[in-house]
Structures are given as structure tokens and as C-alpha cells.
Amino acid sequence: MAKEVVPEAARKRRKPTKAGVVLSEQLIVETAMRLLQQSGREGLTVRRLGAALGADPSSLYRYFRGADDLTLAIADELIGRAMRGWEATGDWRADLRELGMRIHSAYLAHPQAAVLTASRVSGRANEIDADEVILGVLRSAGLPDREVVRIYHAFIDQTLAFAVLDAAGLALPPAARAADEAVWHATYARLPAETHPNIAATVPLLVARMNNSAYPTALDMLLDNAAAAIARARAADPGA
């Protein structure tokens, strides 16, 4: 049976740990993210998290029902960091692009946490607020709600898919990452035109681009599609 999570008001009355730390959900999440950054997923255990906080591991269950509950809180923290300080400009395309880049960047700043959480739906406050904002940006452009949801679905899935793809590369051991990046120079750039004419013709461009994220390009392509949908909606209903 899942253990009962103590309400926030009760948590605030907790005494400091032996290390002089007053536990909070936020502190636990930040410490868990630090452990992920240092040691990867295998390094994030209740025992290690308790040791890093100077607390009995069992005390963490006052804040989280288990490891999965903590994972969802980390996911929500990443979204919260992405949204922090964002302000709408009233230009739907600029606003949506900025939101996408912010989310992508927030995940890449914590690649191990990104790989762990990008596929999850937390249903927590930051995620809900972000979804409300993104849907609002699209609706403000005058799209029918069916088109709003279609584009929102593609936007958020594309953003998180690229976030986890790019984060997985950053999460590799340095030697493995360097070896992967070197393949374009060491292998593709040496393929002869006689056997691989298309690669040979484009290899300078491939070498220049392929170790960088394609997310900005993919995002612009999605925004082009959204702009076309908006144009169609306005043509169908000029008074909208």
C-alpha cells in the first residue's frame, strides 16, 4: 500500500535533519536532479538521496509516495524552469517558438533528468499551466479548436521528442559522445563519390550540421504548418 503523503502545512513544521537541513518537496527534487546529473539514473536511489540530504531515507516518503511520484515531480520542475520568466508578446508565432526553445533548453540543461522524465505526463501544476499557455497562444491566433489541439499535440510531442533525443546524446559518457560526433568527419567525409554519390555531394553540409540539434529547424517547419492552417481558417471565415 502506498504510504500517506503529509500535507504541505505539516511538512513545514518538520525539524531540521542531523545535517541541519529542513526538508521540503522542492529541496528533495533539486537534490534528486543533482544526483541524476552526477551519477545518472542508477545513482538516484532513496538511500543515496537520503544521504545527500542528511536525512533518514524513510522521511522522504512524507513528501513522495515512491520513486515514480518523485519522477513526476522532477518532470514538473523541468517544465516550471522552462516557463519561468516567460511573457507573451501577442505574436503567436514568436511566442510559440520561444516556448518551444525554452522547454527544449530546460531539458538539455539536465540531460539525465530529461531522459528519465520526457515521456511522462505528470498532471502537476507547472505542466498544467504550460499547457494552458500553449493552448491559449494557439487559440489567440484564431484557429478552430480542432486545429488548436492538432498543432498543440504535434508541438509538445515534437519538443519533448527532440529534448530526449538531444539529451540522450549529452548524457553519454564523454568518450562515447566524442566518438559519435567524430563519425561524420572520420567516416562519412571519406566515402567516395563512386559508391556514395549523394553523401559525397552533401558531406560538407552534413559535417557542418549533423552534430547540432535539428530542433530549431523542425520547430520552424511545424510553425509554417500552423501558419498555413491559420491562413486557411481566415480564408474560410474572413470575419473571424
Rank of each mutant, 00 (worst) to 15 (best):
A2E: 09
V5I: 15
A10W: 09
A10R: 13
P16G: 12
A19G: 13
G20N: 15
V22R: 15
L23C: 07
S24W: 14
S24C: 09
E25F: 04
I28F: 13
E30P: 00
E30M: 11
A32S: 15
M33W: 07
R34A: 15
Q37N: 14
G40I: 12
R41C: 02
E42L: 10
E42G: 11
V46P: 01
R47W: 02
L49F: 11
L49H: 12
A52H: 12
G54I: 10
S58P: 00
Y61P: 01
Y61Q: 07
R62W: 07
G66F: 07
D68F: 15
D69Y: 04
I74K: 03
A75C: 09
A75P: 00
E77I: 02
A82R: 00
M83W: 07
W86G: 02
E87M: 11
A88H: 06
T89V: 05
A94L: 10
L96F: 07
R97H: 11
M101G: 01
H104M: 02
Y107G: 02
H110R: 14
Q112L: 06
A114N: 06
V115Q: 01
L116Q: 13
T117N: 05
S119V: 11
S119K: 12
S119R: 14
R124T: 02
R124Q: 13
I128G: 01
I134N: 03
I134Q: 09
V137G: 03
V137W: 06
S140L: 07
S140C: 05
L143A: 06
L143K: 10
P144K: 11
D145A: 05
E147M: 12
R150A: 13
H153I: 00
F155H: 05
Q158I: 00
Q158W: 01
L160V: 02
A161F: 10
A163Q: 01
D166A: 01
A167L: 02
A167Q: 02
A168E: 04
A168D: 02
G169P: 01
L170M: 10
A176L: 15
A178L: 11
D180Y: 08
D180Q: 15
V183P: 01
V183E: 09
W184S: 09
A186D: 15
T187Y: 03
Y188N: 00
Y188G: 00
Y188L: 12
A189L: 03
L191H: 00
P192N: 09
P192S: 10
H196E: 10
P197V: 02
I199A: 08
A201H: 08
V207E: 11
A208G: 02
R209E: 10
R209K: 11
N212T: 09
S213F: 06
Y215Q: 04
T217L: 12
T217C: 00
T217P: 01
A218R: 08
L219T: 04
D220W: 09
M221C: 05
A226L: 12
A226D: 06
A226S: 10
A227M: 06
A236W: 05
A236G: 15
P238Q: 06
